[in-house]
Each structure stands twice: as structure tokens, then as C-alpha cells.
Amino acid sequence: MTKEQNAIIEVKGLAKSFDKTIALDGISFSIQSGELFGFLGPNGAGKTTTINILTGLVRPDAGIFQIGGIDCTKNVQSAQHLIGVVPDESNLYPELTGFNNLCFCGALYGLTKQERQNKARKLLDTFGLSEAASRKFGGYSKGMKRKLTIAAGIIHSPRILFLDEPTTGLDVASARQVRQLIADLHKAGTTIFLTTHYIEEAERLCERIAFIVSGRIVKIDSVEHLLEPFQRKQAMQIACIKDTSFIQPKLSETFPDMSFIFSKNNMIRVEADKPVFAGAIVRFLEEQGIDVSEARRIRPSLEDVFVQVTGIESDALRKEKEKSGMGGKS
């Protein structure tokens, strides 16, 4: 599949409320064909609701949307053959084997027996699940379940793939594999709509990102453009042995060109418009009786953009998600 420079998903003024809770408050965005688009936001921001509306599982209260040039506002069914969905929870059939699950999902999209069996074998091989092909899905590990769920989402070679929190709850190795699979799918030309709460994952994978908070898109741009204002800044992180907050006034007084952000875990983030030299600050801290365990230059990341745009600490976002487990509508 080749990348075409036209919008494959177009959303205008999409709104949805559940009872009195506003889940989406008139969001608008468009996704180009072949693009890997990230949707980033805390729990309850409206990420899953957006996916559910675009895939036909939830009806919008207002707004219009097109998928592949088809107006899907009233009925998504006409575009469902273009879509593959990987939900936030693995929802395949526990009583079926991995192979049979994939074949069944292929059959739902009208693949012939030969087509779906060939595709299932190929996908099981690609996802490293060939040996578990004849085992029941219910007995798979979390990582294996996630991989098979992704495989089920792409068995019919969809032009657009919706991935809802694909790496949540996975161990490091499995998450890495899943990320590689997403990158490969993107390279092959599939348009990907990815929701995640892992900022570094979005930064690494996505071309454009939308930050969504309380049902509103607060920022939408390419990763490059989002990072641009932060690239000019110099930043350093200093890890201290004990509490350092008391030193803030003195530090600001001694280094007036720099700004200091103190976090609870005895970390000091130093930011300035000109190069920051660790030596002077470390010496100053040690003179004040504060032992420094590490001082390192940090490159600006999407996390900085996220914190500035949403006002939400990225650590808080991660903890909140971990506390709530994998599922939950957002």
C-alpha cells in the first residue's frame, strides 16, 4: 500500500455525553492516509469513546465523520471493511485456539477458508505464536493475548487500524515487540490511530499527536513541531540524596538565568535558554551540604510538551493508569 496525501479519517465537532458526563466536547481532526496518529491523554479524557464512535460501537450526539471518504455519521457499517480494531482489552474467544480465533475473525470479514488459514498461519509466524497456535486463547499469557488480538485486528488487511492502549500491562520485552509490529505495519502503509498513555511510546512511534483532556483536543501537531519550542531550551536533571526544596530561593538567587523545578523524589530540573554547566550547580549544592548522586543533561521530550499543554504531570498520568489497571473507558 502506498501513502496517499489525502485525509482517510475526517472528524468535525464530534460530541458525546454519558448521562451528565461530557465524554467528548466537539473534537475535530483529520488523519492522512498512511499516517501514524497518536491520541494522548489521561484516563477519562475521551480516547476510547473516540475510537468507539469511529468504529461504530457508540453513536455520537453531534458532529460528523468520514472514513475513507464515506460519511459514517449515521452508519459506520459501510466503512467497517476498511477498519481493524484492537481494543484496550483482549476480547477474543477463550474457548478457541489461537489459530481458530484468527480464522474466525477472518471469516467475519468474508475471507475464504483458504485465505484465512494462510493469513492466520502467516500472522502467527510473524507474531511468534506458531508454537501456541493450537492452544486455547484462554491459556495464553497477557503478552501473547495482546499479540494475538493485534493479529486478529489485521487479518483482513485493513487500511485503517485502531489501536487502543496496545502495550498497557505488558512486560518490557512484549511491549517492545508490539511497538516493532506497529512500526512495521505503519511502514507497510497502514493508517494507524493509536491511543496510549505512554508518552515516550507516542513520541517514538507517531508522526502527529493530539493531546486530549476532558473531551477536548488541547493541542494537535507533528511531533517535530510540538518539540520545536523545547529544542531551544537547555535542560539538566540533578539527583540529590536528601530533600532539597529548602535551597530553592538560594539557587534562584545565585543562578538568575536558570529556572529550577523541584520534584518530590529529590530531583531538580534545571532549565535555561543558554547551555547549562553541571559543575557550577553541583559545587554550589555541595557547599550547601547537599550530596549530589547524579547530574545529567536531558534532551527535551514530548513529556515536557504534554506537561506544559495539559498541566498534568506525566508521572501522575502513568500512576493513574497503573492504578486503574488496563481497562476502563477514557
Binding site: 461504530g56 467497517q80 477498519i83 476480547n91 477474543l92 467475519l108 470479514y109
Partner: peptide, 11 residues
């Protein structure tokens, strides 16, 4: 178990 969603997503 949300597997019914799979059926609802089919074209």
C-alpha cells in the same frame, strides 16, 4: 466479555 464487540465490528 466484550467478544460480542468483535461481531458488531464486522462488516
Amino acid at each position: 466479555g466484550r467478544s460480542f464487540e468483535r461481531l458488531l465490528l464486522a462488516p
